[in-house]
Design a protein around this nucleic acid. Sequence first.
DNA 1: TTACAGTATTCAAATAATTAGAGATTAGGA
DNA 2: TCCTAATCTCTAATTATTTGAATACTGTAA
Lengths: 106, 106
Amino acid sequence: MVGALHEFKAELFKALGHPIRLRILELLMSGEKTVSELQAALEIEASSVSQQLSLMRARQLVDARKNGTNVFYTVRDPLIFDLLTIARQIFEHQVAQMSSLLSVEA
Amino acid sequence: MVGALHEFKAELFKALGHPIRLRILELLMSGEKTVSELQAALEIEASSVSQQLSLMRARQLVDARKNGTNVFYTVRDPLIFDLLTIARQIFEHQVAQMSSLLSVEA
DNA sequence: TTACAGTATTCAAATAATTAGAGATTAGGA
DNA sequence: TCCTAATCTCTAATTATTTGAATACTGTAA
């Protein structure tokens, strides 16, 4: 079943296709964080953070660990960070390309 | 401006978050293809293929080269393929993890 | 035990964004 | 002119996002 892989990839990329979720993942690069910590860093409603986390939980991007009244989140697969890194490289390529188009020697 | 990078990444991943677009990119891994070729391989309406290509053109994922009545498409940045490869690895990790949960020794 | 405060999630309604499909349109070649 | 390739435009249907209020859960203090 080759369609399953396509569907999985599409769902994965869709989950990454939102600025808030990307920012959450970046915050989780430095280790686990509680919802409160994320909420404070992002400066948005707690319910929004919770909903985005719920979506990423459903797609297995993050894991939740409960401790008292706090819930700590971590990124499940470090390869996620590789995706973010490559995306930044693609961005840099595009910026470089645009710069060269603007320069006189292009 | 750190927000620009987040927006760019979100747009990039959003563009990848669709099964048809992923399949198009995979078809382009083996080199440039015309819309007709893509349409035949995907078995969907030409106008749909064109729509998806137009979206990927807008986000600079693909380049179009016109030759007579044909338009040849290529992937602009090979790093795109790296994203697809890593996505597959993440998929494999999840499958492996699910298998181990099902096995007796887990 | 009861009440309270802090943390996180869920729900529902309104809004916004994507998608699919069909038809019209443009451009090039025979 | 006629045909083919590709794109564009429009609409309906679906899906995603936002916001605020309501709900659950935990630990603690009275």
